[in-house]
Structure formats: structure tokens, C-alpha cells
């Protein structure tokens, strides 16, 4: 509370002080707020903390993190999309940023925000999902699993972090690529509870990020079968990619920095340059290594293309999965 109060007072004093001279000052002349659409400790937050720390050193202005969790990231994403486009509000958003508008469209809802309301600054990290089963199960390969599921359609179950969520999407890609597998879907409220479902043997398989599943693989509880990566993951050199196995599917959970669409190019350039310098710093690299978060840096134009390709693919899957009741 005191910390929050101190930050709050610092920010308000800075705001008041800078309001008068803002017009002639070069960006950034006051602290920048980085919105994180998930609670502290989550993937987005863990990426945002070292990034903001590294950027504020380059820019010479504080970059404070504000967590705005809610509705699977929709609340925080909308805050970034609708912020004043002056570069003082940016966001560290996850790949789910592309799925929410697609789900809103599916349900004919007033969209919380649209993708056109955001523009890219830089991609910070990306991690592929890995398919895991219990180590004591008979499934040694994806083929074993697919064969069994085909023998008993609708009998096996998988857990996810939530419907249309970061674990549900890659699973549906897999089921579709394997010729329309039928499964029981047990949605939960996050990656950790989804993993717990598998560890407690309440479901047959799930997916997880390399860092989260690592300890359970090493302790002999879980077995990885395949990864959704483009290439084999360095921590799991023996685990094949789905591409190698003949399924043309790729899925990464990524974290990237965004600004409201109307942010001027000059401001975006400052942020891009600062981020480029920041991600190259030794301090940032060490922090990200500690967090098991692989740095995958892409500058705005490249990231924009990457993001839009990803979004198109995900929107198609959301459409294909459709609403639950219509199944």
C-alpha cells in the first residue's frame, strides 16, 4: 500500500509538473505506464517486469507496471487499445490479444476492442506449447495417442486453461490436423489448474509451457510427446515437433509490447529504439533466463506481420471450434 501510495504520489506530482511544459518537451518527459492484462506473477507480468526495468534505464523515465486483470485479458487489452495515444500508456500483451475479438465476433458481442485499435512496438518472448501425458500412461508417441483416441472417440479427456484459451487453441489445431479427433474438454481457469488436472489423473492429457512442465518431467511424473514449435525446443531436444510428425501446426504463447493505434510514429520510434537497446542488455538477458522466458525479439514491422498471421490462424480456429452448444 505504501509503495502504491508512493508511486501514486510520484506519478501525480510528475503529471502535474509536466502538464505545463508537456508541449515543448521531447517524448518521454514523464513516467510511462505499462499495462499488464493479467495478475502479478503470470506470464505477462513476468515478461513485463524485466522489460520495463530495462527500458526505463534507456529512456531515463520510470516505466511503471499497472496490472489490469479481468475477463481473460480483455479488460487490460481494452485499456491499452482505448488509452490516449500519446505513448504514455503502453501494454505488455499476450497472444490471447488476437483471440478475444474473434470470440466476441463468434458470440455477436460488442467487441471489447478490435485489433485495428492497437499497433505493435516489439515482440519480447515466445514459447511453444508442449503436449504432455502422464508418465505411467501407455502413450509413448503422438501416434499411440491418436490411434487410441480414434479407437474410442469421445472417451478420452484433456484439460485446458479455459475455453478459447492459450491451451485450448493448440489442442483444437491438433485435433483438426489429425482428422477431427473427438475428446472431452475440461476447461479450467489457468495453466496451473490445467496441469493439476493431469497430475491428479483427472484427465488424460494437456499442454503446457516448457518452463511450467519441466520439473514434473524431470521428477518422472509426466512425459512430453510433441511440441507446437517451429523447431525442437533446446530444453527438450528429444521431443519432436508436430511438423516433423506430419501435422502442419505451430503455436506459440508470446508476449509483446503494444501501443494504442493512434500513437504517432515519432513516439513509436523512440519506444522501438529503447526496446531494441533494452533487450540486448546483459541484465535483461539474465532476468529472462532466470524466469525461463526465452527472448524472441522482433521489431515493430516484423512483429506486426507475425502478429497478424497468428491472429488470422487463431480466428479461423475459433470459428471452427464454434460455440459449445452447437456441437
Amino acid at each position: 500500500m505504501l509503495i502504491r501510495l508512493a508511486i501514486f504520489s510520484a506519478v501525480s506530482i510528475a503529471l502535474l509538473g509536466s502538464a505545463a511544459v508537456q508541449a515543448q518537451d521531447a517524448y518521454p518527459s514523464r513516467p510511462i505506464t505499462m499495462i499488464v492484462a493479467f495478475p502479478p506473477g503470470g506470464v505477462a507480468d513476468k515478461n513485463a517486469r524485466p522489460t520495463s526495468a530495462a527500458i526505463e534505464k534507456v529512456l531515463g523515465q520510470p516505466v511503471t507496471i499497472t496490472n489490469r486483470p479481468g475477463a481473460g485479458g480483455a479488460v487490460g487489452n481494452a485499456v491499452v487499445a482505448h488509452a490516449k495515444p500519446d505513448g504514455y500508456t503502453i501494454g505488455m500483451l499476450l497472444s490471447s490479444v488476437s483471440v478475444i475479438p474473434a470470440a466476441d465476433e463468434l458470440f455477436n458481442r460488442k467487441p471489447a476492442y478490435t485489433l485495428d485499435e492497437l499497433r505493435t512496438i516489439a515482440l519480447i518472448s515466445a514459447d511453444p506449447m508442449i503436449l504432455i501425458v502422464a508418465a505411467k500412461s501407455n502413450w509413448k508417441s503422438v501416434k499411440d495417442l491418436v490411434d487410441d483416441i480414434k479407437k474410442k472417440p469421445g472417451q478420452y479427456s484433456f484439460s485446458s486453461s479455459g475455453i478459447y484459451g492459450a491451451l485450448h487453441m493448440p489442442m483444437e489445431m491438433f485435433f483438426h490436423a489429425a482428422g477431427g479427433l473427438k475428446l472431452r474438454h475440461v476447461p479450467t481457469k489457468g495453466g496451473a489448474p490445467a496441469l493439476r488436472q493431469l497430475l491428479g489423473e483427472h484427465v488424460d492429457f494437456t499442454a503446457g509451457g516448457p518452463a511450467a512442465i519441466g520439473p514434473h518431467i524431470r521428477s518422472g511424473k509426466l512425459r512430453p510427446l510433441a511440441s507446437w514449435g517451429e523447431n525442437r525446443h533446446p530444453a527438450y531436444p528429444k521431443v519432436p515437433t508436430f511438423r516433423e510428425l506430419g501435422y502442419d501446426i505451430v503455436y506459440y504463447i508470446w508476449a509483446g509490447m503494444f501501443a494504442p493505434a493512434g500513437t504517432p510514429d515519432s513516439v513509436i520510434k523512440v519506444l522501438r529504439d529503447a526496446t531494441r537497446t533494452a533487450v540486448a542488455s546483459a541484465e535483461f538477458k539474465k532476468a529472462m533466463k532466470n524466469l525461463n522466458s526465452p527472448i524472441v525479439y522482433k521489431d515493430a514491422p516484423e512483429f506486426h506481420k507475425y502478429w497478424r498471421d497468428d491472429a488470422t490462424r487463431l480466428a479461423a480456429i475459433v470459428k471452427m471450434v464454434g460455440k459449445v452448444e452447437t456441437k
Binding site: P69, A71, V75, A103, V324
Partner: peptide, 21 residues
């Protein structure tokens, strides 16, 4: 009130994103 975890439908939120959870 909020998003139904099983189906993804939003209920009684009257278009307010903040009520999603």
C-alpha cells in the same frame, strides 16, 4: 454474472468488459 467458463458466453454483463470475470 460474467463469462461462463464452460461455454465462453457472457451473462448479465450488459456490455461491460469489467464484469467478464
Amino acid at each position: 454474472i460474467g463469462i461462463d467458463q464452460m461455454s465462453g458466453f457472457t451473462r448479465f454483463t450488459y456490455g461491460l468488459v469489467e464484469l467478464g470475470d
